[in-house]
Amino acid sequence: SSPTPHTGLDLPALVLEFVRCEQDELLVRSKISTHLALLQQNQSSSSTEPLTTFGLMCHIADQTLFFIVEWARSCNFFKELKVGDQMKLLHNCWSELLVLDYISRQVHHDEQDTILLITGQKVDLTSLLTQAGVTLGELVRGARQLAQRLQELQLDCREITCFKYLILFNPDVKLLENQEYVENVYHQVSGALLEYTLCVYPQHVDRFSQLLLHLRELRVLSTQAEDYLSYKHLNGEVPCNKLLIEMLHAKRA
């Protein structure tokens, strides 16, 4: 739904293939919303503590992770890997894909004073920052600044999709059985994104290097988010979200 340049240009086939494999955002939104509604229904009918805002955010992140895993499994490149390598790649990049999912939604969300959740709900930014502590406040502001820079760049949905593959097939992940294959996929995606930017934005010759710079900023943010989640988990404030906790442990191990 994001503004994507309508072009008669000859776009890299790989980029078009990536976009074709994207999940239906509205389907994901309805499934996660249904899950949360059931969760809150169970909460209200049982004697357990009502979910805090942070607890709800953890459930949303946990559910989003399920869809991220489902997306990865649908990628042809990913299917070529054995499950051991698939796990290592996802253990490595889960927080970056979560942060990218959040930020890319803000890039195409036109209201400055709210943030848009994957469920379609909007959260008032001022009240969130008022409730948030120092660390979470810094995280939300950092994400917002990055989203604004990507908005100024007019990042489009095809570039976001390429980001996902560059994040998933990270050549820096060690101890892979098929290291060479992952490096090869990374370089193929990187080349396709470069070709795409030169083809669609010829007037912006350093667009590709700017995109890679923002990808590094996203990685820094995701590490900060992991640190925060670890801290909250140690305080016993993260509800029992199996997948989210497993990913956190695997990355921190």
Binding site: E70, R73, Q86
Partner: peptide, 18 residues
């Protein structure tokens, strides 16, 4: 203590569209 089975591994090994 046997390690808890990985949920991620279960998801990755599940039949497609499960």
């Amino acid at each position: 203590e046997p390690e808890e089975p990985s949920l991620l591994k279960k998801l990755l090994l599940a039949p497609p569209n499960s």
